[in-house]
Each structure stands twice: as C-alpha cells, then as structure tokens.
Amino acid sequence: MKNKNQYKEINFCSLLSQGQVYPCKSRGRNGVGKICKLISFLFLIAILILPLLFHGCSSSVIIYSDLNREKGLFEIKRVGVLPFVNESEKRQAGEIVTNTFNTILFKSDIFQIEEKGNIEKFLISEKVKSVQMMDMEQLKKLGMRLKIDAVFIGVVEEFTGGDWGGRLTTPVVVIRVKLIDIRSGKILWMVRHKKSGDDYITVFGFGRVRSISALTKRVVSEIIETIK
C-alpha cells in the first residue's frame, strides 16, 4: 500500500518534470519537490488573501479638497453647518446627521462653529425653503449676520438598516457634504462617502457595525478626518 501511494506521487511529479521520475517528497535534483511545495504554498496564500482584498469593497469615499491652497488666502476660522437635506427614506435622517456632524466637528476643534439655533433662526427669518436654493446673496447675508467665514452644506442620500422594530438589517449610510467660502462663493472641499455596517468586519465576522447611529458617527468622523 505504501508503495502504491508513493507510485501515485511519483506519477504526478513525473508529469511536471517532463518524464523524469522523482518523488515529490524527495529532494529532487531538478527541484520538482520544491516547485510542488511552492505552488501549494502560493495557492494557500491566494485563498487566504483573496477575501481580504475584497473586504470593504462596498464602501467608497470621493473627495475634492482645495483647502490647503485656499486656507492661506481666506483663513477659515468660523463656520456654520446648514441643516442637511434629506434624500433618504428615513424621515429624521437629515436632523440626525446634522446633529452628529455638529458634534464631531466641534470635537475635532478644526473650526469655531456657529450655534445650530442661530443658523435655524436665520433660515426662518429669510424664509429659506431649501438650503439647496440659497444663492450667494443669502449666504453672504448669513456670513455677515453670524460672522462666519464658510458654511457646510450636506445631503443624506441613504440612511437605511439597523435595528428597526426587531428586524435587524445591515445599516448603510451615504452622505455628501461641501464647504463653501462665503466671501468668494468657491467650493473649498467636497466629499461623498458611503459605508455599510459590514465594511468594518475584520476576521470571522468581528467588527461589524449593527446600529445605524454608530455607523453614522463613524462615517461623519471619517468625513471630517479628510478636512484635516
């Protein structure tokens, strides 16, 4: 029996070595044994690495930044965060993301931030129906009245999943934000970021983010990191 197994191995390796008979396990003079081991090793590495290469592929962050060049010229010190526009199916998504954005931006200490209430008071007094319809004249008025240099305008494109009514689904958050210099009207920085709860899985399913609020905090933090 032992000889039969050895015969099979020799047969396989002899195909590789073009007719020369050298068992795989022996230290063949032509290195066939080493080739077999190398191929097996590479195959094993490929199986282990391939899933890792595609891990996190559902996320995407697209950034445009002119901050480094413009900062020196315009010196952005005080900013305002306009209420995020909600394009998702979840009704309060805009408010949730606005609050999270304000909090994390405040913690980052990059800019001084105008109070949310003052921004909202201005929008009501100017009868602004949608922040996406604000022209430069209104933005300049906002800047003069609240003494801010730039304003964040954002949109929540998607806000789904998490734990709603006992049903657990993978949360997905997609946000796009831009920073506009009020004096020049130029877009200084712009980001579109998409993440799902599965994007944070490391190995064996650990790291998955299950709650939409935890995911929102992570996404907003990652967005704000791109400003620095």
Partner: peptide, 18 residues
C-alpha cells in the same frame, strides 16, 4: 459632475444654490 470639474482644475464652477 461638479466634483470632477473641480478636480480637473480646468474651469471654476458656479455654486449649486446660485
């Protein structure tokens, strides 16, 4: 589209709200 135009640096882009 706006992001791509800005990235290219070829043109300035009028602000969306405007």
């Amino acid at each position: 589209i706006v992001m791509n135009i800005l990235e290219s640096g070829v043109f300035e882009v009028a602000e969306d709200g405007e």
